Simulated assay, not measured.
Amino acid sequence: MFSGSIVALVTPMTIEGAVDFDALKSLVKWHIEQGTQGIVAVGTTGESATLETDEHLAVVKAVCEAANGRIHVIAGNGGSATHKVVALTEALDALPIDGFLTATPAYNKPTQQGLIAHFKAVAKATDKPIVLYNVPGRTAVDMKPQTVAVLSELNNIVGIKEATGDLVRLADLQAQVQPGFALLSGDDATSRAFMLAGGHGVISVTANVAPKAMRTLCDQALAGHGADALATDGLIQGLHRSLFIEANPTPAKWALKRMGVLATDNLRLPLVPLTQAGQASVEADLKIAGLI
Score class of each variant (00 low, 15 high):
1 M>S: 14
5 S>F: 07
9 L>V: 02
9 L>G: 05
11 T>P: 07
13 M>L: 00
16 E>Q: 12
23 A>S: 05
24 L>C: 07
24 L>I: 05
25 K>V: 03
26 S>I: 08
28 V>R: 06
28 V>L: 05
29 K>H: 09
32 I>D: 12
34 Q>A: 14
34 Q>Y: 09
36 T>P: 11
36 T>W: 05
37 Q>P: 00
37 Q>D: 08
38 G>D: 00
41 A>Q: 12
42 V>L: 15
49 A>V: 12
50 T>W: 15
52 E>V: 12
53 T>V: 04
59 V>W: 08
62 A>Y: 02
64 C>H: 13
66 A>S: 08
69 G>C: 13
69 G>Y: 14
70 R>F: 13
71 I>V: 09
75 A>T: 07
78 G>I: 10
82 T>Q: 15
82 T>C: 15
83 H>E: 06
83 H>C: 07
85 V>I: 10
91 A>M: 07
93 D>H: 01
104 T>C: 06
109 K>C: 02
113 Q>W: 07
120 K>N: 12
121 A>P: 01
124 K>E: 14
130 I>C: 01
131 V>I: 00
134 N>V: 02
135 V>T: 01
138 R>A: 10
138 R>Q: 01
139 T>H: 06
140 A>L: 03
142 D>Q: 08
142 D>L: 07
146 Q>P: 13
146 Q>I: 10
146 Q>Y: 14
147 T>R: 09
153 E>F: 13
153 E>K: 13
154 L>R: 15
155 N>H: 09
155 N>L: 02
156 N>R: 01
158 V>C: 14
164 T>V: 00
165 G>W: 08
166 D>K: 04
167 L>D: 05
168 V>G: 15
170 L>D: 10
170 L>R: 06
171 A>F: 05
173 L>S: 13
176 Q>R: 08
178 Q>N: 10
180 G>T: 03
181 F>E: 03
181 F>C: 05
184 L>W: 03
189 A>M: 03
190 T>P: 13
191 S>M: 00
192 R>W: 03
193 A>D: 08
195 M>W: 11
199 G>K: 02
200 H>F: 00
202 V>D: 11
204 S>C: 04
207 A>V: 12
209 V>C: 03
212 K>Q: 13
213 A>M: 06
213 A>G: 11
215 R>N: 15
217 L>R: 03
218 C>Q: 06
220 Q>G: 12
225 H>T: 11
225 H>F: 11
231 A>D: 14
232 T>H: 15
233 D>V: 01
239 L>H: 02
240 H>N: 14
242 S>I: 00
243 L>P: 08
244 F>Q: 08
251 P>F: 11
254 W>C: 04
256 L>N: 11
258 R>N: 06
258 R>H: 09
258 R>E: 08
265 D>Y: 01
267 L>R: 01
267 L>M: 03
269 L>M: 01
269 L>S: 02
273 P>A: 05
274 L>Y: 01
275 T>N: 09
276 Q>M: 09
278 G>T: 10
282 V>E: 12
282 V>G: 13
288 I>V: 15
288 I>P: 14
289 A>G: 11
291 L>G: 15
292 I>G: 09
